[in-house]
Simulated scan of single mutants.
Amino acid sequence: MIDRMELLAVIVLGFLLDQVLGDPHWLYHPVRLIGTYISFLEKGIRKIFGDGERALLAGGVVLVLFVTGTTAVVSGGILYACGRISPGLKFLVSVILCYQLFAVRSLKDESMKVYRELKKDDLPAARYAVSMIVGRDTERLDMTGVTKAAVETVAENTSDGVAAPLFYMTLGGPVLGWIYKAVNTMDSMVGYKNDKYLYLGRAAAKLDDLLNFIPARLCAWVMIFASYLPSKDHEFDGSHAKEIFLRDRFNHASPNSAQTESVCAGSLRIRLAGDAWYFGKLVKKKYIGDDLRPVEIEDIPRANKLLYRTSWILMGLCAVVETVLNLL
């Protein structure tokens, strides 16, 4: 049985570590290991299953089962072994595992790299910086396009990198959090609707959509609430955030991605999304938000402020939920 107060302490300490450390380059992140494992399995599955539509669909299911199963066994096994050695060691490792599931500080750090290059009017450097955090082609982006891409990834990943991991950690601790992270990593690697991954990546993409369904919507409503809070120079507009969310939350191929993106667009009173280039092909996409004012580079730090507000409120909700569950 889960000790809810201990789990809350683990999650809070992990969250605070992320706030302080972020994702330093010297620290090997387990996601890289999961990514290597996914690539290894992909090669084997393609070799064994072949390239037929049904074969690749079946191979995609096998990929999901192996990656999630291995992640559960490895993370659970590590915590079990640590617990056999010392409860204190298990607690410490649990904190580290939770810390590495959060992406608040890294989202801010990486997007602010884009901001700093834009402030210097160095468009090539800004394009390179934003290419590190988005999946689209960036060589055609102008200053506004780079800014929009940075704001969009902060908005979208407030759900994927904060709300969803926190949601699953709250329910089932670090192990369930890492199972979610493994699915999300698979989706980012093979969940594309192109010739290479249309069938092989379908199971991972559908499972990622399912796992993000509740967290994305919860995060969106929390972000709306955060937009209503007082802000310097009235940076955020809560009522418009709610209006655009209700209108544009499905203006994306994914059922979840536009949930928080629409809130951010409405809160900042700008228009996001629209057509984008992926792997050399122009993809037609709907706009999100109204073009009430021009997008400006200061929207990047504003999006980060919204990210931090939302993250702290979500952490507060986690504390309430764990406390209530502990009393039941």
Rank of each mutant, 00 (worst) to 15 (best):
L200W: 06
G161A: 11
K108W: 07
L141Y: 06
V95M: 08
L171I: 15
V114M: 11
A182S: 13
K206C: 02
Y192S: 13
K113P: 01
K119I: 09
E139L: 00
G177E: 10
D121R: 12
G161Y: 10
R202Y: 12
A81D: 09
P215H: 05
L198C: 06
Y180F: 14
A216L: 11
V146T: 01
V162D: 13
A150S: 15
T158Y: 07
V146Y: 01
V154H: 06
Y197D: 15
N194S: 08
L218F: 12
G145L: 06
I96N: 08
T185P: 02
L97M: 12
S75K: 00
Q100F: 13
A182R: 00
C82W: 06
K196E: 15
G201E: 13
T185S: 12
R84T: 12
T144A: 12
V134T: 08
I179D: 11
M112Q: 14
R127Q: 15
D187P: 00
M112C: 07
R217T: 04
C98Q: 07
L207F: 04
P215R: 04
Y168M: 03
C98K: 03
A220R: 01
A125C: 02
D121Q: 11
P215K: 04
C219R: 05
T185A: 11
K113E: 15
D187H: 00
E110S: 10
R84M: 14
A203I: 05
L211Q: 01
G173V: 03
Y99G: 08
Y199E: 15
E117N: 14
G201R: 04
G88F: 03
D195R: 10
L218V: 15
M112K: 07
Y128A: 13
Y180K: 05
N194V: 05
Y128C: 02
P174V: 04
G76A: 08
R217V: 05
V134S: 03
A149Q: 04
V114S: 12
L218S: 05
A81Q: 08
Y180Q: 10
R105T: 13
L101E: 14
G145I: 04
A164V: 07
D122N: 15
K113D: 15
G161H: 10
V93Q: 11
V73S: 07
L123V: 01
V154N: 08
K206Q: 13
D121P: 00
V104K: 09
S188H: 03
N157K: 09
A203D: 11
G135S: 12
K181V: 03
C219N: 12
S86H: 09
A72R: 06
T153H: 05
A164F: 10
I214N: 05
F213Q: 02
C219L: 03
G201H: 12
K148T: 10
A204D: 03
V175Q: 06
M143K: 13
D137C: 01
T170C: 11
T158V: 06
R84N: 14
A126L: 01
E117Y: 14
K193V: 00
T185C: 03
L207T: 03
S106A: 13
D208S: 02
L211R: 00
L101P: 10
K193Y: 10
A126Q: 08
K181Y: 04
G161K: 08
T158R: 02
T147C: 01
L107Q: 11
M143A: 14
F213R: 00
L79M: 09
Y99I: 05
D208P: 00
E139F: 05
E156V: 10
